[in-house]
Design a protein around this nucleic acid. Structure first.
Lengths: 233, 233
DNA sequence: TAGTGGTCTAGACCACTCT
DNA sequence: GAGTGGTCTAGACCACTAC
């Protein structure tokens, strides 16, 4: 006879998930308590707890003390986006990655940036534009500002062989990051770079990172016209 | 004297995180074993395990059996995107949500859709276009296809007062979803809807959902010109 | 105030993987 | 073979919240 394996939290998770997907437990249904489920599955409550906690993280169920656990009305609320370095994205496509520095200049932070960063007038920033290619085809145009007040070491970097993103990731820790995704028009810098008419829709991603309350960097990445950012959940 | 509260896994998590951010443990550093950390913090190994497991999920550390736990070389690899129903997005902006059905037609699935769905020729689909407004301003244009082979009940829905997204979420479970984000040009449908010139860059989001291997729905959502999708991590 | 999830403990065994 | 993380248990107490 087959040895009745010990119940794992994945088993509980899978069973509960299938009951929800199959409709046994429809939207808003109140699930049994952890205690009851533990008895049903023949495992410890901690095991059920872990399973349900993960399902709650996935957005499949809602849990509230005293009220109990209910099947979420809007399932799978969140998708996880892999944020990777451009080099990895390109190499994952089996293409050769190439980097080129376009400009590098130490300047006083412009007003819009000082407002965003909340730094005093006259604060210096390192402004860099650079290019990322996949097999000689332009892939991404990067427009980056580094807060020299927080990252003075950046002044000594040429950024002529390695992009500032990889350098920053290696050198500078950060605590929080904001990202935004939007559709922009090809402008005087990006249109010629991608060899498209001015005004062509291009996918942009903006990112700000912070170390505690101090600004680290702001970057606007513009992708080639066919780019699609994809995810699965 | 202050009562020394019991150590919680959040305390361990926060301490480890700060050691990484402050550089005490630099990139690639091998952390002490769970056992050692448990002794240092004066708590059970399970508590340390939970803390480290969550940090690993966040991408801050890499864990391998036998090898141990190391500070990740590329921190914070993933961002979580909240996927919500348009109504919620709009109401979160303190705006009034309004829905309008633009068209609803039962048609044979076009070739591109049959290829994506892997369904035989002649398979029927419900094609719907509809509009979502925030305080009378056009917010999102929705172009949706529902696989009637998987969701026959959709034929009986008028979708004149409630959008198909909310109906599907309530009625039809799904197991996986693919999403893509891109920049598109305003076309003959979206340009007049948003009152912008044809060719204006617009942010688009496409989503396919599946129930096991059966296609459920494909939707292309086009947002108003100023839209930015934001996230923080 | 009582019910339900949230968490911690102390111990145990398992599973992967490096040497 | 042995070290490290992965997981389960059984029990306990805590914290939030609906009533």
């Amino acid at each position: 006879m087959t040895a009745p394996a010990r119940i794992r939290f994945q088993d509980v998770k899978a069973t509960v998930k299938s009951r929800i997907h199959s409709g046994v437990w429809g939207q808003g249904t109140l699930l049994p308590t952890e205690q009851d489920l533990a008895e049903e599955f023949g495992c410890a409550r901690a095991t059920v707890n872990r399973a349900l906690r993960e399902l709650a993280e996935d957005g499949l169920i809602d849990r509230k003390r005293k009220s109990g656990t209910r099947v979420a009305v809007t399932p799978a609320k969140q998708a996880k986006l892999q944020i990777e370095v451009v080099r990895d994205t390109i190499e994952a496509m089996n293409a050769t990655y190439r980097y080129a520095l376009l400009s590098r200049k130490k300047v006083p932070a412009p007003d819009w940036l000082r407002g965003m960063w909340n730094v005093p007038a006259g604060s210096m920033a390192l402004h860099i534009t650079c290019a990322h290619y996949a097999d000689t085809k332009p892939f991404q145009f990067e427009d980056r500002w580094i807060a020299l007040s927080s990252v003075p070491a950046a002044q000594n970097e040429a950024f002529d062989t390695t992009g500032p993103n990889e350098w920053l990731l290696r050198q500078v820790p950060y605590t929080t990051a904001d990202m935004a995704f939007l559709a922009a028009s090809a402008d005087s810098q990006t249109a010629p770079f991608f060899a498209v008419p001015s005004g062509t829709p291009l996918f942009q991603m903006e990112r700000s990172t912070w170390l505690a309350d101090a600004p680290v960097t702001f970057v606007r990445m513009t992708f080639h016209p066919q780019y699609r950012m994809q995810t699965r959940y």
